[in-house]
Design a protein around this nucleic acid. Structure first.
Length: 299
DNA sequence: CCGATCCTGATA
DNA sequence: TATCAGGATCGG
């Protein structure tokens, strides 16, 4: 589900609400969704939130990190739902009373109904609140790491599309190293990170590049155009709060949808008219995934 | 390179 | 009943 703009939107909305909070306890409803020993981070304070590609780091005190990957259907929310997999109980006080059990693994999470729902605009109670990791398909996860371990696990993750290191020079150099179709290459997170199926399709349309073109056949000027459009489209989508497509697999932490789906150019527009030439948008499969493009505009 | 796989749906 | 879904990894 979430690509760079959606994860960045989650980061932006979460940060002011949870920085300064302390992790009081963790309820793991679905063990598959949580890696590491939760006791390691009980009592740790949330320092900041950072993002690289589609991965969100919740940076904690004492060099701990809670790393989140939402994959297709994951998200972090202020309210529980049918697909809540992990509950993070936060508080503004630095520590727990000694008698309180810090972590409840499994069970007991259905008793959360008595937590007062926060009405819109209401001031959050200083005693704390819960953060809910929800994930219908269970592909996503939360993982406890140290900052050193984080660097290790992200060593195969490329530069973020919105980082200053993602330059035109760098991008062209990477394209030249591969003969894979450009659409497939854009989805590979190892050289540059953050692009998913939506923005791969739409940025190629905007750049008038055929998704089947081998990466190394793309000219320098087309490469520069694509690099520019990738940054542009990501930035615009962030301003729109990301894309909430038809199946509503992505929602912001408060449960609201984004609006960038109203600006899709070719994604999910099979058989609809190309916004430029009026011919039919085509859908093909590449590496098992849908690619949408205009055969007329993207030669 | 491709396909299968991890899961739980919604939709044609 | 079959296909599709904002992801990524694994094996052949």
């Amino acid at each position: 589900m979430p690509e760079l703009p959606e994860v960045e939107t989650i980061r932006i909305q979460l940060e002011p609400k949870i920085v300064g909070q302390t992790i009081r306890s963790i309820d793991i409803i679905c063990p598959k969704s949580f890696c590491g020993n939760p006791h390691k981070i009980i009592g740790k304070k949330i320092i900041s939130l950072t993002r690289r590609g589609k991965q969100l780091s919740i940076n904690l005190s004492d060099n701990y990190v809670l790393l989140a990957h939402f994959k297709m259907t994951g998200g972090l929310f202020f309210h529980p739902s049918k697909h809540t997999r992990v509950i993070l109980k936060l508080g503004s006080r630095p520590s727990l009373s000694k008698r309180e059990t810090p972590t409840n693994v499994g069970e007991g999470d259905l008793k959360q109904k008595d937590v007062a729902p926060l009405s819109r605009g209401a001031v959050r109670r200083t005693e704390g609140f819960n953060l809910y990791f929800s994930d219908l398909r269970k592909f996503g996860w939360l993982k406890i790491l140290t900052q050193n371990e984080l660097a290790q696990t992200q060593k195969n993750l490329g530069v973020d599309i919105l980082s200053p290191d993602f330059t035109q020079k760098y991008f062209f150099k990477q394209l030249q190293s591969s003969s894979r179709p450009i659409k497939i290459f854009l989805l590979d997170q190892s050289k540059f990170a953050g692009i998913g199926n939506i923005y791969a399709c739409d940025s190629l349309f905007l750049s008038k590049i055929n998704p089947l073109t081998p990466a190394k056949n793309i000219s320098l000027s087309k490469s520069n155009t694509l690099q520019h459009n990738l940054q542009k489209i990501m930035s615009e989508s962030i301003l729109h709060g990301g894309s909430t497509a038809r199946d509503r697999g992505y929602l912001m932490p408060d449960g609201q949808g984004g609006s960038h789906q109203d600006h899709f150019l070719v994604y999910q527009r099979e058989n609809e008219k190309c916004l430029i030439c009026n011919s039919k948008i085509k859908r093909i499969k590449q590496a098992g995934r849908s690619t949408f493009y205009c055969p007329h505009c993207q030669k």
